[in-house]
């Protein structure tokens, strides 16, 4: 198996912390991810409902760019992952669309046979392909004492993803038990964060975000782990506004799961993109982990 890497637009801008931490973690685990040359935007959540044919073609271009040496395409962003996966399936099952997309690709000198590339989410690759043994072997800073709330969002766990229970996913939960963290099994881990609802109806979006923060706080989580730039943005950037709106006092850091995985692997926090989040994560993490070390040395 050889992995091509599709970072997606967000990782180049708003969620540079995700990009940075993915790269650091991958390097630490001694694992190759080759970034696609000249990839383009996946159309995010909206494009499919605007113009299905164009959206499919634009996404198919990324699949077609995967060269013969790679058979896996890894996406860290939930929306990119879903779009790529959905497109591959659509092309396989709907010959009509496929015919047109083939034409569009041919105009750019490209070809794609559905199923040639396996689209994978980064979590799946880390969980399944690298696996418990290899990851545990590299843990130098167990996350003992840290209460993490894994948040999957609603896009990674659609039934077509094929690697976790779509109704109640557990793979990220499991991975963080490998790292020694106290994993919070809270009920809303796969509920929607509202996506772009903040741009359409703030009140509704705030309510969706509040539910997530509330449940994690009820279960006494120290922080929430994300796997999608959109989810991270909603819960982190809007946390202050949610607090104002509902008169609540949430102060939950929202970090990418790769950042915390990086901490466990002993990577310097600076290299993991910490500090970019609005609700600061570093003090919480350091407080918990150092408290733990202090207790241990006593």
């Amino acid at each position: 198996m050889k992995y091509a890497y599709y970072p997606g637009c967000s990782l180049e801008s708003g969620s540079a912390a995700y990009d940075k931490s993915v790269k650091a973690v991958i390097e630490q685990l001694g694992f190759g991810l080759d970034e696609l040359d000249d990839w383009n935007c996946c159309g995010a959540t909206e494009y499919f409902s605007q113009n299905e044919l164009v959206a499919t073609s634009v996404i198919a271009r990324n699949l077609a760019l995967v060269d013969d040496r790679h058979d896996q395409l890894v996406a860290p962003c939930a929306a990119c992952f879903l779009n790529l996966k959905k497109t591959d399936k659509l092309l396989a099952e709907q010959p009509k669309i496929r015919g047109k997309v083939d034409q569009a690709l041919a105009a750019g000198g490209l070809r794609y046979r559905p199923g040639r590339v396996q689209v994978r989410h980064l979590l799946d690759v880390l969980y399944t392909d690298i696996g418990e043994q290899a990851i545990k072997a590299k843990v130098v800073q167990p996350l003992t004492g840290l209460r993490v709330a894994p948040y999957y969002g609603c896009q990674i766990v659609r039934p077509l993803n094929g690697f976790d229970n779509p109704e109640y996913p557990m793979k990220l939960d499991e991975m963080f038990t490998w790292l020694g963290a106290e994993v919070v099994d809270y009920p809303v881990k796969a509920h929607c964060c509202g996506g772009h609802m903040t741009q359409i109806s703030e009140e509704n979006a705030f309510e969706l975000i509040r539910r997530l923060l509330q449940s994690a706080a009820d279960y006494r989580a120290d922080l929430i782990l994300c796997m999608c730039p959109m989810c991270q943005l909603n819960m982190d950037m809007y946390q202050g506004r949610v607090n104002n709106f509902f008169n609540t006092k949430f102060k939950l850091p929202i970090v990418y799961f790769t950042q915390m995985l990086g901490v466990a692997l002993g990577i310097d926090m600076k290299k993991l993109g910490f500090g970019k989040e609005l609700v600061a994560a570093e003090p919480v993490i350091r407080g918990k982990l150092e408290g733990q070390t202090a207790a241990a040395t006593k």
Partner: peptide
């Protein structure tokens, strides 16, 4: 669809 203790 679900049984939850996440109160709204």
């Amino acid at each position: 669809s679900e049984v939850t203790d996440a109160a709204r």
